[in-house]
Amino acid sequence: MARDGSLLAYVLTRILLAVPMLLILLTAVFIILRILPGDPVLALWGGRTPPQSAIDSARQQLGLDQPVIVQYFTYLRNIFTGNFGLSIGELYRGQSVWNQIAIRFPATVEIAIGGMTVACLVGIPLGVLAGSNRDKPIDLVVRLFGTIIWVIPIFWLGLVLQLVFGVWLQWLPANGRWSGADAPCAAPSSCPFRTGMYTVDSLLEGNLGHFVNAVAHLVLPSLTLGLVLSGFFAKTVRANMLRTISADFTEAARARGIPRRAIVYRHAFKNALVPVVTVLGLQFAILFAGAVLTEKTFSIEGIGILLLNSVTSKDMTMIQGVVVFYATVIVVISLVIDVLGAMIDPRIRL
């Protein structure tokens, strides 16, 4: 069969398969939000009983007076045209759902990537070290670290880091995303476009000072999130390394006289990566839903806080917007995970 095209063919197939998957997810969101208890229209009045006419007009406005099937297609059309509607919650009432997401998502992306980077940089090498030195002191140390760091409450670790590096040593800002008045690219003329991620925007401006400012704010939340995850990553990598380092093909590689370094890093590690990529990728996807505790601890206005607020205020349009957005992100990330997996493992391709 067409060998050279097999990876490309796999990617194309996988993208095509993502479309029905997304549709199913969107449908599930629609159904769940409609069978959930609590009338969103009543929530608009915050517990007081509104006059019937007000209820009717609100229903009409939200399209809730239409038959369910019509509602469903309106819902799909709105999503695909990027129209997520206006918030009906107390906190964000009347604001565009899409705008709220667009403002907050970049902050979440920054700490997700930051946390993921720390977790990978710390967790993967530790896992490899432990897995290739089974039951030796280094293995025991890594296992102990993994267990302890995983059970530490995230806000406690965040507070300790804030206290040490932000308050006592004063090396790094203790919270927020930015120190000073104007965020990067505040003036529309200074950048070709704006991403909302301060690190990227300051680079677009070409302003190194701004970049340092943005990164400094990212360090503590990323460390907090990353360290907690690194314990889990180290354990996952270690478990898979143990499996691959005693596999038949690694024994055969030893018999061929391949140096130990190459056996550990080329063969055992690469094979261990196949399942690890899936697990870590899903963890990454979860981070995109917003690390609520980290966001709260470091006063970062991300998606996590937005979702939390809209749930507490029964802001149905906002919840729907965030969940739909998140579903899309999940579909995209799982697509990326599968493609990465296929790049590593030729057996996954067709």
């Binding site: 063919a9 194309l12 197939t13 095509l16 398969l17 067709l350």
Partner: peptide
Amino acid sequence: KLPGIARILW
């Protein structure tokens, strides 16, 4: 076993 779409493609 080919996934549905692969069957259509090939």
